[in-house]
Design a protein around this nucleic acid. Structure first.
Lengths: 142, 142
DNA sequence: AAATAGAATTAGAATTATTCTAAAATATCT
DNA sequence: AGATATTTTAGAATAATTCTAATTCTATTT
């Protein structure tokens, strides 16, 4: 199977029944399909609303449960901007996020080829980074 | 006067009565003094508890108001780690934050001399960044 | 296929950080 | 001082998220 991040918008039924050791139940598959469908970094509530199209009986608690399962199994990334509600991103490649202050839209931003953390940060030596989040805000054009 | 970030722990009464166009009321001065005193990135609630030592009548709402005033006037920085409560930091120098997962403590991390955003990020051209937050988690030693 | 056991889903309550509201207090201006 | 604006305050409200406990589903075993 193609890596998830490269598939366009698989329907829930096209997704496998297990992924990275996580059983993909109907709901988890639906939630994942929603996240893969529109890569606009939806919030949990956005995912809830969109899931209801195909699965009107899904509950918000389940959406939260599914998101947590997908995130903890490394299938989806949780993205935070200050105190705003968390957003979810299926792009697992090393990248960070830019929020256009005019539109509110969030864009993936990638690292320059071959750049390492130690190249631009003065980390206390011996530090092992397990989690990194870079969030940018600003304007495009001028 | 010395830049705030370089003063060790001014008592509230040592702080000026106005700063960056913000009137420093008794409470704002107290809140600011608390943040300058222990640079351990306290949460609003930490600030509230510490302020009560010298000012037992201060309210939590006031602490939030003061923090908001200090942050919006660029006197203090608000620091976020995922969904944890915001923390506050008097170091205005361009820097980011590392949370030691063993101790929970947060350390300031600085950029390598002369590094610019565009050196390590592939920003869509024409982007003007108004806000940048980098949060790291991991372990020190091995 | 029925019985069982474990896991997932659900509705709704609970939690928690933060914001809001409206009144009281304080400061500033004339 | 009196008028006006700003700040503080207590407590209520909000909103995202987590928890609880009951139910339903799934997979496995008989």
């Amino acid at each position: 199977m193609l890596p998830l991040a490269s598939q366009r918008s698989p329907k829930p039924e096209d997704l496998p029944s297990e992924l990275s050791g996580l059983r993909l139940t109907k709901q988890r598959r639906e939630v994942l399909a929603v996240i893969l469908q529109e890569r606009d970094h939806p919030t949990a509530n956005d995912v809830y609303l969109r899931s209801q199209n195909r699965m009107p009986s899904i509950s918000l608690a389940t959406v939260y449960n599914c998101l947590e399962a997908l995130v903890s199994h490394g299938i989806v990334r949780q993205v935070n901007f200050e105190r705003e509600p968390s957003r979810y991103c299926p792009n697992l490649a090393d990248h960070c996020h830019f929020q256009d202050q005019n539109t509110g839209k969030i864009h993936d931003v990638f690292f320059k080829e071959g750049v390492k953390l130690e190249d631009f940060l003065d980390l206390p030596q011996g530090t092992e980074i397990s989690h990194l989040e870079i969030s940018l805000k600003g304007n495009i054009g001028h």
